[in-house]
């Protein structure tokens, strides 16, 4: 009762096994390998992307921080400048107002003086006229008009109050 070694059976089994090997390679191992590789790649890509995004975020964060700092500095500068300008403007406005006020005062004084002179002049004329009228009425025809006037003017020349102006 031998071991049963038999060449046809051996070859048949060999062919069967090789068919199985081929079938498993083409329907089993290859698609699975492909799928596993694809999945590994996907995961790797995803992780790389996440890493890149993280780095980008970090960079953006730094840039934003920098810009905020810069903006703050700039703002500070602008405020300082504005304050300076405001101070200057205030000073200028104050000076101008003072000047204007002074000019106004000056003008008013000149005006007032002129007005006073005029009033004095008018008063003198009026006084002269009134005096002439009064003298006419009192003296009446003792003196001619011209003689009168000369007399009065002479009197006025002598009086101290009207002499100065």
């Amino acid at each position: 009762m031998g071991l049963g070694l038999d060449l046809p059976t051996f070859i048949g089994q060999l062919v069967s096994f090789l068919i199985l090997l081929g079938l498993l390679v083409y329907f089993g191992y290859k698609p699975i390998r492909k799928m596993l590789d694809e999945r590994a790649n996907r995961i790797k890509e995803g992780m790389e992307q996440a890493e890149a995004a993280k780095q980008e975020y970090e960079q953006a964060k730094v840039a934003v921080q920098e810009q905020i700092g810069k903006a703050r500095e700039e703002g500070q500068g602008i405020i300082t400048q504005a304050t300076q300008i405001g101070d200057r403007l205030k000073e200028e406005a104050r000076g101008e107002a003072r000047k204007e006020a002074q000019a106004l005062v000056e003008r008013t004084r000149i005006e007032l003086e002129r007005e006073r002179d005029k009033v004095i002049d008018d008063l003198r004329h009026e006084f002269v006229d009134t005096a002439i009228l009064a003298a006419e009425k009192v003296i009446n025809e003792t003196l001619d008009k011209e003689g009168h006037r000369k007399l009065i003017e002479q009197a006025m020349e002598e009086s101290t109050t009207f002499k100065e102006n």
Partner: peptide, 18 residues
């Protein structure tokens, strides 16, 4: 045996999903 193994792998890899 071959049919069983082939069936197993064929069924498993017929419509593979990620």
């Amino acid at each position: 045996s071959i049919l069983v193994l082939f069936g197993l792998f064929f069924a498993a890899t017929r419509r593979m999903k990620l």
